[in-house]
Design a protein around this nucleic acid. Sequence first.
DNA 1: TTAGCTTTGTTTGCGTACAAACAGATTGCC
DNA 2: GGCAATCTGTTTGTACGCAAACAAAGCTAA
Lengths: 146, 146
Amino acid sequence: MTTAEKLGKTATLYRLDAQIGYVLRRATQRHLAIFAEQIPELTPPQFAVLARLQELGPLSQNRLGRETAMDAATVKGVVDRLLSRGLVLAKADPQDRRRLILDLSVEGRALFDMLARSALAITAETLSPLAPEERRQLLRLLEKIA
Amino acid sequence: MTTAEKLGKTATLYRLDAQIGYVLRRATQRHLAIFAEQIPELTPPQFAVLARLQELGPLSQNRLGRETAMDAATVKGVVDRLLSRGLVLAKADPQDRRRLILDLSVEGRALFDMLARSALAITAETLSPLAPEERRQLLRLLEKIA
DNA sequence: TTAGCTTTGTTTGCGTACAAACAGATTGCC
DNA sequence: GGCAATCTGTTTGTACGCAAACAAAGCTAA
């Protein structure tokens, strides 16, 4: 007799704690708390935008969304908040009148440079319960399912 | 001369793709897409509420939040939507007039039983790029950093 | 016994996240 | 050249997720 039958049901045995979605959500929660403590002035998506612009230079809003894994509606909100704080600048693309070209402002670049070390420390602290080899493993496995 | 110096900056080398937060976000995105395709009638937090109530029986809203890793404001919204669909029932606690006791309705229990297999399939599909041993590893490592 | 602390639940405000529908611009192809 | 398909960006609506502030109820210790 199976455990499910003992419980008087034919339903599949379902343990929430063993589901990847639930564990991903809790790991993300802890990471977000560490991020907010170390870098209270920006959210992770905002920081990702600054990082990509610093790395790749001026980009269209659409391309920026692809490079930061945000859909068009989401990236618009994130970019609008950075624009209103003067951390990012927008200009029209003369070659393509649909496009909005975005780039870091001087202040945005300075802020990114200032916070980059903290951002690395956030990853380190999030992964601190793991041994060095485990940290590499986790990043590798997450990358495979992403 | 370090790479950072070659780039003409003292800023720390920062690779967005190597940060745990960014990889977690992308893995979560793929998982959510799989969930929405397999179970379009419920969100993952809603399903987690049904699963915990099925597993633990009637719970106060506050306790339910702790058991599903949601803060008080979030669990209220999720529960309200389940209440309005008749999948969950609420009653007052005679012993403690602050408490709201929540439980599955007949319809909620039936829906959970119906969807439990799909929910397991969602975890399986999300982890399908990994070998069996890698799947166990990933769950174990995520649990350690959660 | 009662003042003070804690717990439970609610509300508001902000920031993702995504689906869907839309407008305007560009491109591909006949 | 012109039409259809595609691309870029915007808007609306729904659903988390969390901080902060609040009210009501319960608990505790002097």
